[in-house]
Design a protein around this nucleic acid. Structure first.
Lengths: 244, 244
DNA sequence: TACGCAAAACTAGTCAACAAGTTCGCAGGA
DNA sequence: TCCTGCGAACTTGTTGACTAGTTTTGCGTA
């Protein structure tokens, strides 16, 4: 590898430099190679391009990405820390299967944190700029329409906005980490998912509560919104038993 | 290193096999070497045996633990993921400094999650066994008295009990992750800390609310309890400016 | 004495080879 | 046909050398 010209980063399907914002308070930027591998694999796992249970060989991956096993190994550690893969010593690394308890736990955590965030946002109020940006996001969400992946990005940004609005952007990083669990089922059940219009209405209700400075209404709106996930989940294990 | 008989794991001050329970839903047990190094360093950082800002050289550490740089490196990655160290490429790894925003964020997250947990515990009720164990923990806390480190263990177990009681033990893993931030300041200000009696009274209030099936009272009790941290924090940066 | 530059002594990042363990398949016998 | 056991082909874990970058040190010069 040191003798031949390195062909840069590999022929991964979706190697967009997605940056799921390190949760840590400290900078600690991983080296670009490890980071790129992490981002690529993470994306593929979340979008179910890599199905749960798939074997991930360090050797194969290092071949595919054109590096040695070292950086691949470090990326796998990070993914393991995120609960996305499972490393069985001397046996192999596997894409983590979906787990109903894990999904319920993620829902619980997200609900608790978003309620706290929205409540505080309603108490403190948003700056005019933040309010305007939230409104703009709502419009953009309506226009996104069919493009589900784009809508998801806007969705995330909308929610993250409240955490940043109260000066606790780091909280969104934690939510994002947990959210991964139902991002996977979201991609699994995109057709059957809740109509986007309904989601946007719920977003609108949350924003209105915050702008009205009404914490209780905000909490109710968030609870409604989070309940949507439950509807999607219920019959999933019977429809896709191999993924659980 | 390969020629001489490996002297097992090194002469670390506190190499007790502390197991801060991996948060991930999946098993993913790291290899014992990495895990031991991680546990030892984590303990030293949290107890301030390693002061914020201290340089951690991969070379030095590998020498100290009697391994190569590989496992050390992997342990450092995990610590970085926990926000306990900061690794600056080509410059060095450093024990993370304390940060008021990070501490406030941790407090916010813990409060939000514990409120949600205690509320649900109050709604669902505890099993007789769980109730008895919580009572027993209260007694033990009283007996722990001076032994601060032992009290902290009991404290954690008491709180974790509620999460497990509602079948969401994983939630405590997230709290524990965040809690690290004020574990460090707890060790910093042990003498000036809130008297243990007060803390036990607050614990008792939380448990009573849960046993009385009174979610609102539970939330108030948790809020009171979490407010203690704020009292400790306030004048810390002025007393220990070098740690921030 | 004070300044500037160059070399040496660090740092983490990467790599390829080796070690130890697990799994799978095939050959041979009952 | 079925069971047993050996071996080959995997897997991750560990190692020490090498690379590229940063910081520090100390010497030579003004």
């Amino acid at each position: 590898m040191a003798s031949s010209p390195p062909p840069a980063l590999g022929p991964a399907p979706g190697t967009a430099p997605t940056s799921p914002s390190r949760p840590g308070v400290l900078g600690s930027s991983p080296p670009p190679t490890t980071r790129a591998i992490y981002a690529a694999l993470r994306r593929e796992i979340v979008t179910l391009a890599l199905m749960p249970g798939t074997k991930l060989s360090e050797n194969e991956l290092s071949l595919r990405f054109g590096t040695s096993r070292g950086p691949v190994r470090e990326a796998l550690i990070r993914l393991g820390e995120d609960g996305l893969i499972e490393v069985l010593p001397q046996r192999g690394s596997f894409v983590g299967r979906l787990s109903l308890p894990a999904i319920e736990r993620a829902r619980f955590v997200r609900e608790a944190l978003e309620i706290a965030v929205v409540r505080r946002a309603a108490e403190l109020g948003l700056s005019p700029g933040q309010g305007r940006r939230a409104e703009a996001s709502l419009d953009a969400q309506g226009e996104a329409g069919i493009d589900a992946e784009h809508f998801i990005d806007l969705d995330d940004a909308f929610h993250a906005g409240f955490a940043e609005g109260i000066g606790l952007g780091g909280v969104w990083a934690i939510i994002e980490r947990e959210k991964t669990q139902f991002d996977r089922i979201r991609f699994l059940s995109l057709p059957a998912a809740t109509p986007i219009d309904v989601l946007i209405d719920q977003h609108r209700a949350i924003l209105r509560a915050v702008l009205d400075r009404d914490p209780a209404a905000g909490e109710r709106a968030v609870r409604d919104h989070m309940a949507e996930v439950l509807k999607i989940v219920s019959d999933l294990p019977t429809r896709h038993p191999d993924l659980f």
